Deep mutational scan, measured.
Amino acid sequence: HYVEVNGKKIQATSAEEAEKIAKKFAKIYNATVLDLGNYYKVT
């Protein structure tokens, strides 16, 4: 599981952790979290 933010991949140990990381970055960048199955993308 990982999160992609601005083209950078951030490794996460679980889907739950990946979701938390994605939501945190989405809040910082006022962005949207896309759940793409095996990873989250912040756009």
Rank of each mutant, 00 (worst) to 15 (best):
N30R: 08
F25Y: 13
S14N: 10
K8V: 14
Y39W: 13
I21C: 08
N6Y: 13
Y40I: 08
K20N: 09
Y39D: 03
V33N: 00
E17Y: 05
A26T: 03
T13P: 09
I10D: 03
V5G: 00
G7S: 04
G7M: 03
T13F: 11
S14D: 08
V42R: 00
H1M: 11
I21H: 01
N6K: 08
Y40A: 02
D35M: 13
L36Q: 07
N30Q: 09
Q11D: 09
T13L: 12
K20C: 12
T32V: 13
L36P: 00
A26H: 05
K23D: 09
L36K: 08
I21E: 02
V5N: 01
V33E: 01
A18D: 00
K24D: 12
L36N: 07
K9P: 05
N38S: 13
T32N: 09
K23I: 12
V42H: 03
Y2G: 02
Y40R: 00
K23L: 13
A18I: 03
V33A: 04
K24V: 12
N30S: 08
A15R: 15
G7E: 04
T43P: 04
L34M: 10
K41N: 04
N38E: 11
K8Y: 14
N38L: 09
A15I: 13
T13S: 14
K8T: 11
E19T: 06
E4L: 14
K8Q: 12
A12R: 01
F25D: 02
K27P: 03
K8P: 00
A15L: 14
Y29S: 05
A31G: 15
K41E: 07
V3M: 02
L36D: 04
G37C: 09
L36R: 06
A15F: 08
A26K: 06
K27W: 13
K20T: 10
Y40Q: 02
G7P: 00
Y29D: 05
A22M: 04
I10Q: 01
V33Q: 01
Y2P: 01
L36E: 07
A31H: 07
E17A: 10
T32H: 11
F25N: 02
E17D: 10
I10R: 01
E17M: 11
G7I: 01
K8L: 13
N30G: 14
T43K: 07
L34D: 06
T43R: 05
K9T: 10
K20H: 10
L34H: 08
G37H: 05
N38V: 09
I28R: 11
K9W: 13
I28C: 14
N30K: 10
Q11S: 11
K23W: 14
V5F: 13
K8F: 14
A26E: 08
E16Y: 11
A31F: 08
Q11W: 15
K20I: 10
L34R: 06
T13I: 11
A26M: 06
A15Y: 08
N6S: 06
L36W: 04
S14A: 02
I28W: 14
L34G: 04
N38F: 11
E16M: 11
E4C: 14
A26R: 04
K41C: 11
I10E: 01
A31N: 03
I10G: 01
A22G: 01
V42K: 02
I21F: 05
E19N: 08
Y39F: 08
V42I: 10
E17N: 08
A18P: 00
A18K: 01
G37R: 01
I28E: 11
D35G: 04
V5C: 10
A12I: 04
I28A: 10
N6D: 08
A31I: 05
N6G: 10
N6T: 03
A18G: 01
Q11V: 13
